[in-house]
Amino acid sequence: MDRRSLNRALLARQMLLRRHAMAPIEAIEHLVGMQSQAPNPPHIGLWSRLDGFGFDDLAAPMTDRRVLRIVLMRGTLHLVSARDALMLRPLTQPILDNHLRSPRGAGLTGVPAAAAYARKILEERPRSDKELREILAEHRPDADPADLVWAVRLSLPLAQVPPRGIWGASGLARHTTLETWLEGVEVPEPSVDEMVLRYLKAFGPASVQDVQQWSGLTRLGEVVERNRPGLRVFRDEEGRTLYDLPDAPRPGPDVPAPVRFVPDFDNLLLSHADRTRIIGEEHRRRVFTVNGIIRATYLVDGFVHGMWKIEKARGAATLRISPFAPVPGPERDALAEEGARLLAAAHPDATSRAVEFEPPAP
């Protein structure tokens, strides 16, 4: 499969070739979660993928605990369904265990006891990191409370509770244990095989290295090999072996791809070892910053063509588009129209809204 064929397959799986009539929770499960290092990006990601999505549509499922934010793949915060939180969290614990074995964790003692104490505190009611630091400082005056909170967050499955994560809401991030937040919800059997196959459904065709890049886990080759009899096998232009579900969509390379706005931290850009199916290496260095920020991008003909951001000042909302190269006239018009719709959906109360193009970056 050539690069354009892989691009169109990825866009089809990611619901970016057309908007889908699907409930948000269904889309979140199909995508195997949405990276949510910041609270707002998943709303924009769903708006770009779903027909009729409103930015208030996540408030109810988050408040009634059908959807939540929790650390999962790659040790990063994700927005997932309750079922996936319970299924994926045990599978991704090895990632956090590796962090605990890092130099920062090497000098810490008594972490299991501190985690057990913190569990009791967090199950009483959700707490912020500041509150937990103060409590642990009294419990363990011999240790750095910031390091203890760090170790506790790596040791315990913690759910971040609303209103954090709801569009337009504010407030500190507060956490309780996953078991407390989802008390009474049936716990599914953790299955690394199911996780890998669902990854292929949402991101394939893909190599073993791609699956490991997305998940943060290692030694997944044996999982792929175990499931190989039920998979289709391809090769990319570099000769790498790619695996896929037999009936997954693989549109032709010439299928039209509409312009789309992709939010910060979107898994579209993060879930392959070789990301050239969606972004050129020369552009990746602009989008992926040294301090871990993944900037918002837009797609032209299915590939990252530049970056964008929304600025608000004195009630006015402006979407600024920063191209990497000149935008052809039809695509420029389409971006302006799509950008105007995004501003109207994200900031309906703005006193004015405008889409502005900056000169292509040198």
Rank of each mutant, 00 (worst) to 15 (best):
V32G: 13
G54A: 14
P39A: 13
G33P: 04
V80S: 07
D64K: 02
Q93H: 11
L96W: 00
E29C: 04
G107S: 07
E26N: 07
V111E: 06
G54E: 10
P90W: 10
A60S: 01
Q93D: 13
S81R: 01
T76K: 03
A116C: 04
L46K: 09
R101G: 08
P39F: 09
P42G: 04
M87E: 14
I28S: 05
H99N: 12
I44R: 02
S81C: 02
D64E: 14
G107C: 08
A60V: 14
A82H: 06
D56Q: 13
N40S: 13
T76L: 04
R66V: 02
A59V: 10
D51M: 06
G75L: 03
N40Q: 14
P39H: 04
L68C: 09
R69T: 01
E29S: 15
L50V: 13
P94W: 03
P61A: 02
A82S: 14
G52T: 11
P39S: 06
L100T: 10
T76G: 10
H43L: 09
R104N: 05
A27Q: 10
G52E: 15
R49C: 12
F55W: 11
T76I: 09
A106S: 10
R49S: 12
E26A: 14
G75H: 05
A118Q: 08
M34V: 11
R89M: 00
R74C: 05
R66G: 05
G110T: 06
P90G: 07
R69K: 15
S48Y: 03
S36I: 00
P61R: 08
L88G: 02
T92D: 01
H30N: 01
L50H: 07
M62P: 03
A116R: 11
G110Y: 06
L77Y: 05
L46M: 09
L91Y: 04
G107A: 13
G52M: 12
S48Q: 11
R69L: 05
